[in-house]
Design a protein around this nucleic acid. Structure first.
Length: 506
RNA sequence: GAGCCGGUAGCUCAGCAGGUAGAGCAUCUGCCUUUUAAGCAGAGGGUCCUGGGUUCGAGUCCCAGCCGGCUCACCA
């Protein structure tokens, strides 16, 4: 018999023995007096004599992390909310059944409750002297090892619950991520933005350049696309008079998976009527600094050994950044950036704007380690942005970079329906030439715009990437609880459970 | 999609000169009333990712495949 099946049988047998002792093997409600972190915080400094003189009674619950049994007494560590508290069980100060439960039937990973008083051991560790035990849930499978935790990356992602139990830093990452989202929501709400939800299944996908996932609705017999961006719906709402809206939700892009890309990822998009991209640049700086402080306690965070300072976000025009951050000696001069010969030497793209962007992405992007705003983008690559007055080759758009990654994209929204129609038509030509990612014509969006979209600025912030930067994570999969993986082959677990139940007389 | 690296006990890993498969933790039995990587004595546990091939003999060498990681390409 394999070890796993042997353990399964042992533990099922124990489950019955626990029941025979008078404990429900899967308990019900347990009202604890404190969480383990609360106990550790509240009595961290209390000396042993004071705990003895004025006993503190507590009821706590947790998962057994370690267990050390001696003949007539023993210790265990309970884990709750990422922290652990030691318990002490003695034969002469615990009911007989409770001691038997502790001595014979508990396994690492079981969830129990205890009642008792706080004391300090000889070595000074704050512990609970147990007077009563409660059994709350049995673990039927072996837990990961206690020193190294769980390191196999695939198992960590597939069985994230084990990762969270075994690796406290993983728990911290997701708590930080939650704080980031909470901070962004709070700040937007404070400024009068309202949160909305727009379709994730869309008949026409738009708002970004990407390949979509396709699905089918049976009753209507239509194909729908999982959204690649919420942008066009959010701007319809601005037309409708919801002048400050935001949405935090998933986008889906049917493209490669990498340390910076997951097929579904979380985006904050917000739109502010009567503003332009300059307003959003200032707002973004405040937003990011505040978020960094709320999530990590500081506006300066360390990412892969480098300190990033969110209190001083630098700003460069795209064309300035090309010169400023150019790697190596052949630094371009301002006039080069408008010179077709120079552009052709450095890029194979067909238009000057696309060439500029390609060169930027290739040479500059990964050098933007400090939080940096890059602004004024070529019109060709920005079909939904408003052009710069007096310079129609460029649009009022900016992106924010940090740790060499794009984490935000924003612009003054194009609100002239005729101009928008022409941009869509240009995209259709690209599509006709085989560019699967070119935007589709969205006539309903055009119709909304024909009713009048106020001057508006909008921005999207990639929550996963921001979380990477603020949690010092090298891979996007470290900040997504369940990143997309190829499905596992069948486990056969149901079969094994059934066999074990039969054999142990269930 | 391409290149590099990896897949051995539940977990973390060793084994490479091709010769019957190992350690620590975990598990089981016994002892132990302040331990904490508890300790001591004993025991069990393996489709060495899969399938072919070379060989008297393959965890080890060769080929193909599967799964994963990293880098690159596309993208946010």
């Amino acid at each position: 018999m394999s070890l796993e099946d042997e353990i399964l049988r042992q533990r099922l047998t124990r489950t019955r023995e626990i029941e025979a002792l008078g404990f429900p093997p899967y308990g019900h409600r347990f009202d604890y007096s404190h969480t383990i972190p609360e106990i550790l915080a509240q009595w961290a400094e209390t000396p042993a004599e004071e705990l003895d003189r004025q006993p503190v009674r507590v009821r706590v619950a947790g998962r057994i992390q370690t267990i050390r049994r001696m003949g007539k007494a023993g210790f265990a560590h309970l884990q709750q909310n990422g922290e652990r508290l030691q318990i002490y069980v003695r034969r002469d100060t615990t009911p007989e059944a409770d001691f038997t439960l502790y001595k014979k039937l508990l396994d690492i990973g079981d969830i129990i409750g205890v009642e008792g008083r706080l004391f300090r051991t000889r070595t000074g560790e704050l512990s609970v002297w147990v007077e009563k035990l409660y059994f709350l849930a049995k673990t039927l499978l072996n837990m990961p090892e206690k020193w190294h935790g769980l390191e196999d990356v695939e198992t960590r992602y597939r069985q994230r619950y084990l990762d969270l139990i075994a690796n406290p830093e993983v728990r911290r990452i997701f708590i930080t991520r939650s704080r980031i989202v909470a901070s962004l929501r709070r700040q937007l709400e404070q400024r009068g933005f309202i949160e909305v939800e727009t379709p994730m299944m869309q008949p026409i996908y738009g708002g970004a350049t990407a390949r979509p996932f396709v699905t089918h609705h049976n009753a209507l017999d239509i194909d729908l696309y999982l959204r690649i961006a919420p942008e066009l719906y959010l701007k319809r709402l601005v037309v409708g008079g919801l002048e400050r809206v935001y949405e935090i939700n998933r986008n889906f892009r049917n493209e490669g998976i990498s340390t910076q890309h997951n097929p579904e990822f979380t985006m904050l998009e917000f739109y502010q009527a009567y503003a332009d991209y300059n307003v959003l640049m200032d707002f973004s700086c405040e937003l990011l600094e505040r978020t960094a402080v709320d999530a990590t306690g500081s506006s300066r965070v360390v990412y892969q050994g480098q300190e990033l300072d969110f209190s001083r976000v630098q700003r460069y025009r795209l064309r300035e950044a090309l010169i400023e951050f150019w790697p190596g000696g052949d630094k371009p001069r301002p006039e080069n950036l408008a010179d077709p010969d120079w552009l052709n030497r450095h890029s194979t793209k067909p238009t000057p704007g696309e060439q500029l962007m390609e060169i930027f992405e290739e040479k500059i992007e990964d050098r933007l380690v400090q939080p940096t705003i890059i602004y004024e983008y070529p019109v060709e690559t920005s079909p939904l942005s408003k052009t710069k007055p007096g310079d129609p080759a460029f649009v009022e758009r900016f992106e924010i970079y940090a740790a060499g990654m794009e984490i935000a994209n924003a612009y003054t929204e194009l609100n002239d329906p005729q101009e928008q129609r022409r941009r869509f038509e240009a995209q259709l030509e690209l599509r006709a030439r085989g560019d699967e990612e070119a935007h589709q014509m969205d006539e309903d969006y055009l119709r909304a715009m024909c009713y009048g979209l106020p001057p508006t600025a909008g921005e999207g912030i990639g929550i996963d990437r921001l979380a990477m930067v603020l949690t010092n994570s090298k891979s996007i999969r470290e900040v997504i609880l369940f990143p997309l993986l190829r499905p596992e082959p069948p486990l056969g677990l149901a079969e094994r459970l059934r066999a074990a139940e039969k054999e142990t007389g269930g």
